[in-house]
Design a protein around this nucleic acid. Sequence first.
DNA 1: GTGAGTGCAAACGATTTGCACGGTG
DNA 2: CACCGTGCAAATCGTTTGCACTCAC
Lengths: 152, 152
Amino acid sequence: MDVWRTVELSARLRTAGLRATGPRLAVLDALIRLGGHRRADEVHSHLTGQGRDLARASVYNVLRDLTAAELALLVDVGSGVTLYEVGGTFHHHFVCRSCGSVQDIACAVGTPPCLRPDADAHPGIASLDEARIVFRGLCSGCGALRGSALLP
Amino acid sequence: MDVWRTVELSARLRTAGLRATGPRLAVLDALIRLGGHRRADEVHSHLTGQGRDLARASVYNVLRDLTAAELALLVDVGSGVTLYEVGGTFHHHFVCRSCGSVQDIACAVGTPPCLRPDADAHPGIASLDEARIVFRGLCSGCGALRGSALLP
DNA sequence: GTGAGTGCAAACGATTTGCACGGTG
DNA sequence: CACCGTGCAAATCGTTTGCACTCAC
């Protein structure tokens, strides 16, 4: 990894209150390089594939720490696996019913008024700070296949 | 279980295209009686607690079948466990950040226009048929505790 | 009677944890 | 140099699967 990149990523880690260690730099770098939504072991095999030798458990632990420090974002679309992405702007997700691929969906900041539950109707809720939305449907790739009768 | 209830639940199963077997009746009955959002092993221990002796694997299989037949609804709020509830009206969910409890949130049918992603902005999406929303915040119980400084 | 459903145990994959060591601040 | 973070392996947890048997239809 580039020296300047190391410096920059180290700074990011320290700013977030985390020590800049080898595995953390490696995982953060991998997350950024890979882009999109990645599983823990995807990150792990990417790194081992690069010659970097680190324990799978460390990848899990590092990802947990990065998430807690808000340097990474945890994405759970209900597929049974936890995905991670580099923390950036807040957005929602689209999951293809057919192939399971995940796409980001831009969204307005905050919870749209038309969505915010009526407080009076839900006395069981004291405060509400987030709405995660997962859309489901067909991605363009699978839609095309289905259209051409290659899929049921 | 009441004879009439057995008859009624059996009918529900057959209407959905499923054979009315003992385990299926038991699980469906338990789901209805327990109410709310339940984990597979919660259903299992409820039944074994009642003297009903069935395999844990069967509960999982039955729940999968009930879900496929739309007699039950699968709820995944990103906690790592899969919850089930008796299928009724479509709704969203609220998860307490503190205690993890889940509440139903009534919602308008379909995807509100303010939420529907702009097709032009997302060429990767062919079609979209569902939006699952998970709200996060504090439930009234935990909110009260926090207010009284019993929690950080 | 026939095939769908079940029970059981064992496999499974993702994730976490305990403990001794090594590196960072 | 004190402690946080790591590596390793093993444990854990929820869930699925293979196979023989049984029961609903």
